[in-house]
Nucleic acid binder design. Structure first.
Length: 269
DNA sequence: ATGTCACAAACTTTGTGA
């Protein structure tokens, strides 16, 4: 099974590229963020022509998430348990069971700057995510994928010194990711598309993509059953190129859910 | 150059958010 996550920065503006990418990459499930699209305005018919069912959660202007699946889409949930708002809850999380795997597509609040009310909202939102996922852990493999707006380590930004006094790298944000890992979730780090860094986001401005001055903020956190099934993970840097791209690249994960897990105690064949 | 986008309101430009 192939699972992907992509912040498309408006599904309306990106629809031709999204449809082309679905055909080219052929994922079984895609987690989308920043769809900027009301649920009833989502281009579900167009993706259905490619075989995907849609679970969308959104409003017209900001935020918005969706799950597209061609391997089933069951037990859909929109929003988190006790989800905080700014001031009202926003469309930042949708979960569903696809092909026997419990998946969440999330768009974590940006935070704007440390000390800003939006930063406190970001931390509260991450705690609500933790609590929601904790209650769902169980026999099914589970993963949460999306734009976390947090770089897990200094190696996940082009220049750690450039981020002094900035969000995305502060200890409280990273500790919030640590509390997700403390649930037993592992960070599925993708292969880079080019160069040494598996960056997933590059600012539109100042030729940042061309200079590979990016960040790894689009993350895949999976439980033990999910991470044990991972056979490959990569950043699709090609999707960031050319005319009219999103500022994020997709992260693609290949799973072998049906294959027997390697037995570490087995002697070499 | 705080350099690019996308969206929507109230217009052909500006505010907001990233």
């Amino acid at each position: 099974m192939r699972v992907a996550t992509w912040n498309v920065n408006s599904v309306g503006a990106r629809l031709p590229r999204l449809l082309g990418w679905l055909q080219e990459a052929a994922p079984d499930v895609v987690c989308l963020q920043e769809t900027k699209c009301a649920a009833d305005a989502f281009p579900a018919e167009q993706v259905a022509e490619l075989g995907y069912a849609t679970a969308a959660h959104g409003t017209s202007r900001w935020n918005g998430v969706a799950l597209l699946s061609r391997v089933g889409l069951e037990d859909v949930r929109r929003g988190l348990d006790d989800e905080p708002g700014f001031p009202d809850p926003e469309a930042r999380a949708v979960g569903a069971t696809c092909g026997g795997v419990r998946l969440w597509s999330v768009y974590v609040p940006n935070g704007r700057e440390p000390g800003h009310p939006h930063y406190a909202y970001k931390l509260a939102w991450l705690e609500a995510l933790r609590a929601t996922l904790a209650a769902e852990l169980g026999p099914r493999p589970l993963a949460v994928l999306g734009d976390f707006n947090v770089a897990p380590t200094d190696a996940d930004v082009w220049d750690a010194a450039a981020f002094a006094q900035s969000t995305h790298v502060t200890p409280p944000e990273r500790e919030a990711l640590g509390r997700l890992r403390a649930l037993g979730l592992g960070d599925v780090v993708p292969r880079p598309g080019k160069g040494p860094h598996p960056f997933t986001y590059w600012d539109y401005r100042a030729g940042m993509f061309h200079k590979d001055l990016g960040m790894r903020i689009d993350l895949v956190y999976g439980d033990g059953a999910f991470t044990a099934a991972v056979r490959d993970a990569y950043v699709d840097r090609e999707a960031r190129k050319g005319k009219g791209p999103s500022d994020h690249a997709p992260v693609v994960v290949d799973l072998a859910l049906d294959a027997p897990l390697p037995d570490p105690a087995a002697p070499p064949a």
